[in-house]
Structure formats: structure tokens, C-alpha cells
Simulated scan of single mutants.
Amino acid sequence: MSNSADSAKSSARGRLRPVRLLTVGVFALAGLIFFTSFNTAKGTNIRTDGSLLKLSDLIQERSRKNKDLEAVNSGVRGDVERLAERDNGSTKADDEELSGLEKASGTKKLKGEAISVTLDDAPPNAAPKLPGYPDPQPNDLVIHQQDLQAVVNALWHGGAKGIKVMDQRLISTSAVRCVGNTLILQGRVYSPPYKITAVGDPEKLKQAVAASPEIQNYMLYVNAYGLGWKVEDDGAMTLPGYSGTVDLHYAKPVN
């Protein structure tokens, strides 16, 4: 009987030993994880560490910084222009030529009759509004780069003297680009709805927009799926001057 009991105890100890070893291993692993987390955090909250911010948050933050820098740059440029006007030794003809170049380049404010064109995404649950159209794909319901470019090109073709996209004036080096469903313009990020404002002859501008083949194609999606589209007369208004840098980083003048 005694031998049988000793054998049972030995067998039980044999079965428990792997369990104990596994328990010790789990605690050791947990300790290693805690130590690694502490070493990584360096006393900070990992959940709120800046390195783990979403890319979209970083883009928005950079956009806000670019806006602030543009404001500073505009103020410094104004100071430089005021100092230059004190005594620059130029003639009246020189000043008139410079003023004309500044207006053409878009760095000066521009006042005149204006129209605005607003584009917006369709509702996410949009369905065909007309018979015979298939159910929309995701790309059918959002504004694309080509849509914005089509409006800008049509307005230039209609004789626009100046164009503003959202709150920024376009110049010859401006590029209207979209990444996903956001617009990136001159270092700043925008979400729909997108508003494009142009100064010029309102009737000619509207005619040019209506005659654009690209915009006519866009209107098919407006009518079928509800993409946003609005053309308005703004009356007399003033476009801001371009306030960003005008330095060319790649192109160089020909001697």
C-alpha cells in the first residue's frame, strides 16, 4: 500500500512539474514585456506618443504650420515692399511696368466681377437617380484631381484674370493635386467641398465652364449619382495675392 502511494505521489509531481515550469515561463515573459514597454516609453504614455500619430494627423499639422509660415512670409514681403518704395530710384514707367508684372504674376490683390464653382462628394449611400445607370462604384462618388483641373482650365480658357482655389490664389507654378479624397495645394491640405473662384467676365466664364468636355462628362455623374455642383455669381470681390514662395527649385532661366 505504501509503495503504491509513493508511486502515485511521484506520478503527480511528474505531472505538475511541466505546469509549474509553464507558469514560471509566463511570468518571465510578462516581465520582459513590461520592461520592454517601459524602456520604449521612457516615462511617457505610449498611446499618446507623437511618433504614433496617424499620418492624416501629421499632414493636417504640417498644413497648419504651412499656413502660419505663409502669413509670416506675406508680412515680411509687405515690409520689404514698403522699404523699397521709400527711395528705389525708379521712374514712373518702371513702377507701372513692375505693377503690371505683379498683377500678372498673381502676387497682388485682384478686384473685379467674379463667379465661383463648388464641387462636392456625393452622399456615401448614393444610388442611381436616373434609370439605366448601374450602381455607383466608390470612385464615382468622390471629387478627383481631374475634376478640379477641368474647372480651373475652363476658367482660364474663359478669360479669367485671376483664380482662387479655396483660400489660395493660383500662380503659374501652382499645381492642383489630389491624394485620396483630399486636395493638396501649395503645401496645404483641404477636404471637400472645394470652391474655385475666378475674376473676369462672368458670362464668358460660365460659358467656358459649360462648354468644357471634361465638365460635361462630370455632369453625367452629377445627374446620375448626386455629385455636388454649384455655379454662382459672386459680384464684385477681391482675390488675395499669392503669399507663398516664388523661388524656382528646379527650373532655371536661359541665359
Rank of each mutant, 00 (worst) to 15 (best):
G235L: 04
T107F: 10
A122E: 04
P240H: 05
D49V: 01
I115Q: 01
S243K: 11
G78K: 15
A5Q: 14
D147A: 14
E85W: 09
V76F: 11
A126T: 04
L32M: 12
F38H: 13
R169I: 10
I143G: 00
M219E: 02
A122N: 03
A236K: 14
K206G: 01
E203T: 15
N153M: 03
N88E: 09
A236I: 14
K161T: 04
S243D: 15
V76R: 11
S37P: 01
R15E: 09
Y221A: 03
S90T: 14
I196T: 09
V246T: 14
H157W: 06
P253F: 09
A154P: 04
P134N: 10
A198H: 05
E61N: 08
M237P: 04
P213S: 12
E113F: 07
T48W: 08
V76A: 13
K252C: 02
L148A: 03
A251N: 08
D120P: 07
V209Y: 07
D233V: 01
M237S: 10
T173S: 14
G200T: 01
Y190P: 00
D94M: 12
L83M: 08
K230H: 10
G78D: 15
V246I: 15
P240G: 08
I115F: 06
L110G: 01
V165R: 02
V231K: 00
K67I: 08
A224N: 07
G25Y: 14
A5H: 12
A71L: 09
D247T: 11
A251I: 13
M219G: 00
P202T: 07
E113S: 13
S4T: 13
N255T: 07
K111L: 02
D68P: 00
L248N: 07
S56C: 00
